[in-house]
Simulated assay, not measured.
Amino acid sequence: MKTYLVTGAAGFIGANYLKYILKKYEDVRVVVLDLLTYAGYLGTIAEDIDHDRCEFVRGDIGDRQLVDELFTKYRFDVVVNFAAESHVDRSIENPQLFLQTNILGTQNLLDCARRAWVTGKNEQGYPTWQPGVRFHQVSTDEVYGSLGDEGFFTEETPLQPHSPYSASKTSADLVVCAYHDTYKMPVSITRCSNNYGPYQFPEKLIPLIINNILEGKQLPVYGQGTNIRDWLYVEDHCKAIDLVVTKGKDGSIYNVGGHNERQNIQIVKIIIRTIRRLMEENPQFRVLLKRQDGLEWINDDLISFVKDRLGHDQRYGIDPSKIKADLGWFPETTFEVGIEKTIRWNLEHHDWIEDVSGEDYQEYYERMYK
């Protein structure tokens, strides 16, 4: 039985990945390490923690003593690092926190793994490694910066981050690469486009818009909403990570994209139309609406354009040709299918949204959008 350390698995993508691998593999045991910051919610994975195949440890990836103790106790074969401060808006408010967690936290994980996995030295003086081990870093397409109207990010695109968040993820990627080059450590990196799907914290665009419609609030859109993102359904992303971890070449970097480019304003309008249709088709959903004066008010008039984000990248677009050619991965979920599944999930699990949208989040929302 292989043992995985999955960091940040109480967050959005990490939780979906945890559920995916526990369902797929019967011979994998997982230890979750999560500090449970604002975007980490233990309730998301409470049903997965059975203390047999899945255990939970609350802690910081930057805590050297704790991580060393975990490696000694569980003898991990694989580390999958999702743990990160990840919201660009928050990085603009507090850059230092992002640098501390995303860079130094990643480096600490790498060093603890190095101490646990190195078995000796070869004739050239390089470390020799325990067979079958892998450190996988989950990164983002934001490390590449911004695109013009044409072209796509490839793995060879120069790194040009524009926000404290993307700069911290770029730095973490470079540290991972340095451990491979310097120590020949078995590592891999995936850089994904914007994820969406179940269990996404409501500060992100899609769940924020869904939740605001249910609350009868205005729908804040940065600038004129013309910024373009490539949207990837989270389960497709989890499948890609699994393929890279199990079959990817050591030292490899793979871009993971959804082939679903949309302007932010288009996303918002699609959500408006879809929620209204679902409310018309399923009267049981209407009890979630704070406004009970019909459905006519669910329209584009809810959109409110707000001051644009500082340094807002105009367009991201991923070319996932490498992972398709090397590992046979492709995005299975079209945006039309994925967005309806996501909206339905949010309507059917509105109690989860209310649980994670506590007082701290409400204060943050007021500060950012009012």
Score class of each variant (00 low, 15 high):
L159P: 02
N346P: 01
T246D: 06
D319G: 09
G251N: 06
E55T: 11
D48W: 05
F305E: 13
V245C: 04
G145N: 13
N81S: 15
A9W: 05
I210G: 10
V67E: 07
S357T: 14
D50T: 03
V57C: 11
N195T: 10
H312V: 04
I272L: 09
G317N: 10
K341T: 03
A10N: 12
E150P: 00
P202S: 14
F56S: 15
T119K: 13
Q96W: 10
L174T: 08
S321R: 10
S168K: 04
S252T: 07
R134C: 06
L310G: 02
L147D: 10
L327N: 06
W231I: 13
R276W: 03
Q314L: 08
Q362C: 07
L232R: 14
V78Q: 02
D326E: 15
N16E: 02
C54Y: 01
L104I: 09
L36T: 11
E235P: 00
V80N: 03
P131T: 08
I271G: 07
I206K: 12
G294R: 11
E332I: 02
V234L: 08
N122P: 02
A83P: 05
Y41M: 02
N195F: 02
D230G: 08
F152P: 04
T128K: 10
V67L: 09
R58L: 08
L42R: 15
Q284H: 08
N211C: 13
S321H: 06
C177S: 14
I275S: 01
N16S: 09
E55Y: 05
V57M: 11
D293K: 12
Y361M: 15
S139Y: 06
K217L: 14
I298R: 01
I271E: 05
G105M: 07
S304Y: 02
G338L: 08
L232H: 10
